[in-house]
Design a protein around this nucleic acid. Structure first.
Lengths: 160, 160
DNA sequence: ACCTGAACACCGTTCAAGT
DNA sequence: ACCTGAACACCGTTCAAGT
């Protein structure tokens, strides 16, 4: 039962969604695929690259159009759909400043500075949302029921 | 030569600034202090807590006033002053949404939504700046000479 | 092409014991 | 109070070898 690169990325996302980024190790991904850890390196040069492919997959179905607020909300939803999704995107997208596909897409419908500002805000707020909810779930902080509304208000400030 | 908690935080920041977050392990911090790794756990319950104290120290001298743009630039400068400073702040500050001292300070001089939006943007852009410069230094991406100006333009968009 | 086995050089953390 | 020694259960990655 030979695996393909797509199987590896899919397996990694299953581990991520099930256990969180903290426990998404190469060894666990390998176990998920019923393979030895070293087998992963036939498909991917290192973990960083795998995380990048996971981020790409998380964002794969996000469409961007002239409605920047709606586009931002769709981007947020895509990241919220998988556990620690925003953190994976933030970690791997941050160092691609400018060379990030969604930034170019957004810029095509507005302006490069607005696109970048919006993207940093959307990813940052969504990452904070996921971390906060996780902290609240474990009880180390009281839950904030206003996070989605807070997101929309910040969006309005940037797009005003 | 007994160490205090402040010594531990200072030593950790020295390791961070010298080697980067990736190599800022408990074991390296211990070596920096010429102590066994287990000794650190007398001062700090875990690594997460130590990172939080490092973030607090990085931001300790940042002052916030009614000039939000200038305040943001000072915050950015404080994070840029230490290697991977923004990443440390982002990692530890994100899950404190609302319970973050600087957010309250900024809110006192403007509005809670502006404060949060600004903070997410400033930390996000600065983290991207540091990661980008690091990538450029290693040659895996061409340097962007426009990052400080890009930061200021995004600021103007939020504060307009 | 895809995988195993075995190894290397690391991690964070705990805990009894020393001074 | 502050630290050592020794251990536990992990990491990412490499590389020769198998099929």
């Amino acid at each position: 039962v030979a695996n393909t690169l797509d199987d590896v990325v899919a397996g990694a996302l299953r581990v991520l969604d099930g256990y969180g980024l903290e426990f998404c190790s190469m060894r666990r991904v390998a176990a998920q695929l019923e393979v030895r850890p070293s087998a992963l390196y036939h498909h991917v040069p290192d973990k960083q690259t795998l995380l990048g492919l996971m981020a790409d997959r998380i964002l794969a179905d996000v469409t961007v159009d002239a409605d920047l607020a709606a586009s931002s909300t769709r981007l947020r939803a895509a990241m919220l759909a998988v556990r620690d999704g925003a953190e994976v995107v933030a970690t791997t997208a941050a160092f691609r400043l400018g060379g990030f596909a969604l930034e170019a897409d957004l810029a095509a419908h507005s302006d490069p500075d607005v696109a970048r500002t919006l993207l940093l805000y959307v990813v940052g707020h969504t990452q904070a949302t996921q971390l906060h909810r996780q902290a609240a779930a474990v009880g180390i902080v009281e839950a904030d029921p206003d996070l989605d509304a807070s997101f929309e208000r910040g969006l309005a400030i940037i797009l005003r």
